[in-house]
Structures are given as structure tokens and as C-alpha cells.
Design a protein around this nucleic acid. Structure first.
Lengths: 141, 141
DNA sequence: TATTGTTATACTCTATAACTATA
DNA sequence: TATAGTTATAGAGTATAACAATA
């Protein structure tokens, strides 16, 4: 690894830790883990979400997502239901309590994101989003 | 959260997952977890490292770092020693086997970093490093 | 008294393989 | 045969509180 790569790599790794810890920190007050917060935020933004899409969004394998969903269902925050169009598929939705918890947590996450980004000027934020998407192949070069 | 913030936030979260999974993927072939790879890489780059600095680098709390170090020590990859200047402090160093494993893993990580960044032009990489450091407060605005 | 690190506990997350049900 | 999801299992990571030793 060239030394300039190493510098960028270290900065990226540090940034990644900060970004994901933001979910953990937001969840702590509500007794939620990082992954639980990520799942709740994904569902509140999208409405009903299938397990496959959740796994892709959260970067979690199927069996682990099943367990993650189990724990949230046991706590009464989400429910599973069979999808109408494909009876193999499961859709995850929020309960009333889950919605309330997810809203509070989502606002907490959003506030922390704003704090994290407040040192970065608008123009650079736009560039950052573009580069980030390019790196994860969501966007063409 | 404004919708433009949300777009950036999602891109950042996705990027963060990719970056940290890179360590997990590099470790899989060697039976090492993400955190184990991160620790080995930190030690190979720095030589002997104290527990406090390791905790800061890996974003891991003290008790968890103790456990992480225990598992690597049990596998014969690292050893602990008392620091000369402060007899409370512990320093972590690599064994011969640990050095060999860490070198291979480090090269694997480096290769994956290059792949991850190959779509990003040099100039943008430099900007990215600057913005990343600014976000985590390592660098003034 | 503050700091460095460990131990103890209870819970959550992870990877892998094997399984069921639907397509 | 392939896909969506679950179950089982063993190991690893996590947060918190309480502790020992050194500064």
C-alpha cells in the first residue's frame, strides 16, 4: 500500500467507525443496539421492507437478520407478515410502539448526523455523497 | 433530516459498512474476525501499541479490548508485556507467527482498499481524505 | 484521587451448514 | 432447480459495573 493510500485508508476506517457508532450511541438511551437502530431507521424510512432488502441495506446475512428481527419482534417493536405477491417472502413493519421508538431514535440519529457533518461545507457534502456512492458502485464513474 | 442530508447519510452508512466489511472479508480466509484484523494491522504498522491507543484506534472499550487481546494471545499471534515507563500500562506486540499472519492479512486488506478506491480519481481521493479527517475532528476546518 | 487494565455477567452479533416452503 | 427465510450451533463482540495495581 502506498503511503498516501494508507493515509486515506486510515481516515476512511476512522470515519466508518464514527458513522456506525453514531447508530449505537443513538440507540443506547433506548436500549437498542447499532443493528437494531439501523433496522428501525430503514423500516421507518421505507415502510414495509422485505428481509432480503433489509439484509442488503444493513449488510447482514440472512440467518443473522432472522435473529435480529426475532429480538425486535420479541420486544414488540416490529411484526413479520407474509408478502402477498410471493408467499415465501416476509415483510417487516413497525408496531405502534415500534413506530414511536423508531421516530425518537431516527430523530436522534439525524441530529448526530448533522453534528458529524457540521464542519463540512455544503459543496463538499455533495462531493462526498458522490464519491461515497461511486466507491460502493451505486454510481458510474 | 433534510432530504439531501438523508441521501448523504445513506451513502456514508453504506460506505462505512463496505469499509469495515473489507477487514472481515480479508480475515475470513485466515479465520480472523474484523476486529482481530484491525488489531493486527494496527500493531504491524505501529510496532508495540498500548491498550489505550488500541482502544482509541479500533473504537473498542477497554473490557472488550481485553477480551479481543485474550483471544489473539490464546491463538499465539500476540503477546502482552508491561511497559517500562509506566508499570500500569500493557503493550501488545506480534509473535513470529503473528507477524507472518499479520503481513499476509495486511497485504490482503491493502489490495481490497485499492480495489475499493480504483474508481476514484487521485484528486478526489485527496479531497476524500481531507473531508474524512475533518469529520472525525482530526483536522481543523 | 485518577488512570491502566482486568474480571464478571448478561446479552447481542456473526458465520456456517442444514433445513422448510414456495417459485 | 433456485429463491426466501428459518433453525441450530459455536464462537466473537458489546456494554456495564466492580475490581486491582500503579501513578
Amino acid at each position: 500500500m502506498r503511503s498516501q493510500d494508507a493515509g486515506l485508508a486510515e481516515a476512511l476506517v476512522d470515519l466508518s467507525h464514527h458513522v456506525l457508532h453514531l447508530f449505537a450511541d443513538a440507540g443506547r438511551g433506548h436500549g437498542l443496539s447499532q443493528q437494531q437502530v439501523e433496522l428501525l431507521c430503514a423500516v421507518i424510512v421505507r415502510g414495509a421492507v422485505g428481509m432480503t432488502e433489509l439484509g442488503r441495506l444493513l449488510h447482514v446475512e440472512k440467518p443473522n437478520l432472522s435473529n435480529l428481527t426475532d429480538r425486535l419482534e420479541r420486544r414488540g417493536l416490529v411484526v413479520r407478515s407474509r408478502a402477498a405477491h410471493d408467499r415465501r417472502a416476509t415483510e417487516v413493519t413497525l408496531t405502534d410502539e415500534g413506530t414511536a421508538v423508531a421516530m425518537r431514535t431516527y430523530r436522534d440519529v439525524a441530529a448526530r448526523v448533522r453534528t458529524l457533518l457540521e464542519r463540512v461545507p455544503q459543496a463538499e457534502q455533495q462531493q462526498l455523497a458522490t464519491v461515497a456512492r461511486r466507491i460502493v458502485h451505486d454510481e458510474p464513474a
